[in-house]
Protein backbone atom coordinates (compact mmCIF):
# COMPACT_ATOMS: atom_id res chain seq x y z
CA UNK A 1 0.00 0.00 0.00
CA UNK A 2 1.41 3.40 -0.82
CA UNK A 3 2.01 5.93 1.91
CA UNK A 4 -0.92 8.19 1.09
CA UNK A 5 -3.41 5.37 1.07
CA UNK A 6 -2.01 4.07 4.34
CA UNK A 7 -2.20 7.48 6.00
CA UNK A 8 -5.77 7.92 4.81
CA UNK A 9 -6.81 4.50 6.06
CA UNK A 10 -5.26 5.18 9.45
CA UNK A 11 -6.58 8.68 10.00
CA UNK A 12 -9.98 7.71 8.68
CA UNK A 13 -10.16 5.34 11.64
CA UNK A 14 -8.55 7.70 14.11
CA UNK A 15 -8.21 11.37 13.17
CA UNK A 16 -6.58 12.11 16.50
CA UNK A 17 -3.64 9.76 15.98
CA UNK A 18 -0.39 11.29 17.11
CA UNK A 19 1.74 12.13 14.06
CA UNK A 20 4.95 11.05 15.71
CA UNK A 21 3.43 7.66 16.46
CA UNK A 22 1.87 7.35 13.02
CA UNK A 23 5.25 8.02 11.44
CA UNK A 24 6.79 5.20 13.49
CA UNK A 25 4.01 2.85 12.49
CA UNK A 26 4.46 3.68 8.82
CA UNK A 27 8.23 3.56 8.92
CA UNK A 28 8.73 7.13 7.64
CA UNK A 29 9.69 10.46 9.20
CA UNK A 30 7.23 12.61 11.04
CA UNK A 31 7.85 15.43 8.56
CA UNK A 32 6.94 13.15 5.68
CA UNK A 33 3.61 12.27 7.27
CA UNK A 34 2.89 15.90 8.14
CA UNK A 35 3.69 17.03 4.60
CA UNK A 36 1.51 14.38 3.02
CA UNK A 37 -1.39 15.35 5.24
CA UNK A 38 -0.90 19.05 4.52
CA UNK A 39 -0.79 18.33 0.78
CA UNK A 40 -3.92 16.21 0.97
CA UNK A 41 -5.70 18.98 2.84
CA UNK A 42 -4.74 21.43 0.08
CA UNK A 43 -5.91 19.01 -2.58
CA UNK A 44 -9.24 18.56 -0.80
CA UNK A 45 -8.56 14.87 -0.34
CA UNK A 46 -8.78 15.42 3.38
CA UNK A 47 -11.79 17.68 3.81
CA UNK A 48 -12.18 17.85 7.54
CA UNK A 49 -11.87 16.08 10.87
CA UNK A 50 -15.15 15.37 12.57
CA UNK A 51 -16.01 13.64 15.78
CA UNK A 52 -18.37 10.70 15.64
CA UNK A 53 -21.05 11.26 18.26
CA UNK A 54 -23.86 9.01 19.24
CA UNK A 55 -26.36 11.74 20.16
CA UNK A 56 -28.80 9.12 21.37
CA UNK A 57 -26.62 8.66 24.41
CA UNK A 58 -26.79 12.33 25.35
CA UNK A 59 -29.68 14.19 26.90
CA UNK A 60 -29.90 16.42 23.86
CA UNK A 61 -32.75 16.00 21.42
CA UNK A 62 -31.55 15.42 17.91
CA UNK A 63 -33.46 14.01 14.99
CA UNK A 64 -31.99 12.87 11.70
CA UNK A 65 -33.96 12.44 8.50
CA UNK A 66 -33.07 11.17 5.09
CA UNK A 67 -34.93 12.90 2.28
CA UNK A 68 -35.28 11.48 -1.18
CA UNK A 69 -35.48 14.47 -3.48
CA UNK A 70 -36.67 14.46 -7.09
CA UNK A 71 -35.47 17.52 -8.93
CA UNK A 72 -36.06 19.28 -12.21
CA UNK A 73 -32.71 20.36 -13.57
CA UNK A 74 -32.91 23.73 -15.25
CA UNK A 75 -31.51 24.61 -18.60
CA UNK A 76 -27.84 25.50 -18.36
CA UNK A 77 -27.66 24.78 -14.64
CA UNK A 78 -27.92 21.03 -14.20
CA UNK A 79 -27.90 19.26 -10.87
CA UNK A 80 -24.92 21.07 -9.37
CA UNK A 81 -26.83 24.32 -9.05
CA UNK A 82 -29.69 22.56 -7.29
CA UNK A 83 -27.26 20.75 -5.01
CA UNK A 84 -25.76 24.09 -4.06
CA UNK A 85 -29.17 25.47 -3.10
CA UNK A 86 -29.58 22.44 -0.85
CA UNK A 87 -26.18 22.21 0.81
CA UNK A 88 -26.06 25.87 1.75
CA UNK A 89 -28.57 25.19 4.48
CA UNK A 90 -26.73 24.51 7.71
CA UNK A 91 -29.42 22.05 8.80
CA UNK A 92 -28.51 19.82 5.89
CA UNK A 93 -25.47 17.72 6.73
CA UNK A 94 -25.09 15.65 3.56
CA UNK A 95 -26.15 15.93 -0.06
CA UNK A 96 -25.54 13.13 -2.53
CA UNK A 97 -26.50 12.93 -6.20
CA UNK A 98 -28.01 9.51 -6.76
CA UNK A 99 -28.61 7.06 -9.54
CA UNK A 100 -32.01 5.39 -9.71
CA UNK A 101 -35.52 6.50 -8.88
CA UNK A 102 -34.76 9.87 -7.32
CA UNK A 103 -32.04 12.45 -7.71
CA UNK A 104 -30.67 13.52 -4.34
CA UNK A 105 -30.27 11.98 -0.95
CA UNK A 106 -30.36 14.79 1.56
CA UNK A 107 -29.55 14.16 5.19
CA UNK A 108 -30.86 16.70 7.58
CA UNK A 109 -30.57 17.15 11.32
CA UNK A 110 -33.00 18.99 13.52
CA UNK A 111 -34.18 19.36 17.07
CA UNK A 112 -37.47 17.58 16.48
CA UNK A 113 -39.52 15.85 13.83
CA UNK A 114 -41.70 18.91 13.72
CA UNK A 115 -38.83 21.28 13.02
CA UNK A 116 -37.62 19.07 10.19
CA UNK A 117 -41.11 18.73 8.76
CA UNK A 118 -41.46 22.49 8.80
CA UNK A 119 -38.11 22.96 7.14
CA UNK A 120 -39.00 20.52 4.38
CA UNK A 121 -42.40 22.07 3.82
CA UNK A 122 -41.23 25.66 3.96
CA UNK A 123 -37.78 25.54 2.37
CA UNK A 124 -37.27 22.45 0.28
CA UNK A 125 -40.64 21.63 -1.19
CA UNK A 126 -41.12 25.21 -2.30
CA UNK A 127 -38.00 25.38 -4.44
CA UNK A 128 -38.91 25.64 -8.13
CA UNK A 129 -36.47 22.98 -9.15
CA UNK A 130 -37.73 20.39 -6.67
CA UNK A 131 -40.52 18.14 -7.84
CA UNK A 132 -40.99 15.98 -4.75
CA UNK A 133 -39.55 15.15 -1.33
CA UNK A 134 -39.98 11.88 0.58
CA UNK A 135 -38.81 12.30 4.16
CA UNK A 136 -37.70 9.29 6.21
CA UNK A 137 -36.89 9.78 9.87
CA UNK A 138 -34.04 7.80 11.43
CA UNK A 139 -35.27 5.85 14.45
CA UNK A 140 -32.01 4.44 15.66
CA UNK A 141 -28.43 4.54 14.47
CA UNK A 142 -26.58 1.24 14.80
CA UNK A 143 -23.47 1.96 12.83
CA UNK A 144 -22.02 5.07 11.27
CA UNK A 145 -18.77 5.63 9.42
CA UNK A 146 -17.65 2.07 10.08
CA UNK A 147 -18.21 2.27 13.82
CA UNK A 148 -20.81 0.19 15.60
CA UNK A 149 -22.37 2.29 18.36
CA UNK A 150 -22.70 0.69 21.77
CA UNK A 151 -20.19 -2.03 21.05
CA UNK A 152 -17.58 -2.90 23.61
CA UNK A 153 -15.01 -5.35 22.40
CA UNK A 154 -13.59 -7.77 24.88
CA UNK A 155 -10.59 -9.96 24.18
CA UNK A 156 -11.90 -13.47 24.70
CA UNK A 157 -8.83 -15.26 23.50
CA UNK A 158 -6.87 -17.51 25.81
CA UNK A 159 -4.04 -15.45 27.29
CA UNK A 160 -1.25 -17.70 26.12
CA UNK A 161 -1.37 -19.82 22.98
CA UNK A 162 1.46 -21.38 21.01
Amino acid sequence: MELREQILRDIEKDARVNLHELAIRLGVSEAEVANEIADMEKEHIICGYNTLINWDNTSLEKVTALIEVQAQPQRGLGFDAIAERLYKYSEITSVYLMSGGFDFTVIIEGKSMKSIAQFVAAKLATLDSIRSCATHFVLKKYKDYGVVFDETRRDEREKITP
Binding site: R157, I160, T161, P162
Partner: peptide, 11 residues
Protein backbone atom coordinates in the same frame (compact mmCIF):
# COMPACT_ATOMS: atom_id res chain seq x y z
CA UNK B 1 -6.04 -9.60 36.18
CA UNK B 2 -2.91 -10.15 34.10
CA UNK B 3 -2.80 -8.75 30.59
CA UNK B 4 -1.06 -10.60 27.83
CA UNK B 5 1.09 -10.16 24.77
CA UNK B 6 1.33 -13.91 24.57
CA UNK B 7 -1.18 -15.16 22.08
CA UNK B 8 -0.42 -16.91 18.84
CA UNK B 9 -3.62 -15.99 17.08
CA UNK B 10 -5.01 -12.88 15.36
CA UNK B 11 -6.95 -10.30 17.35
Amino acid sequence: DAISLGVGEPD
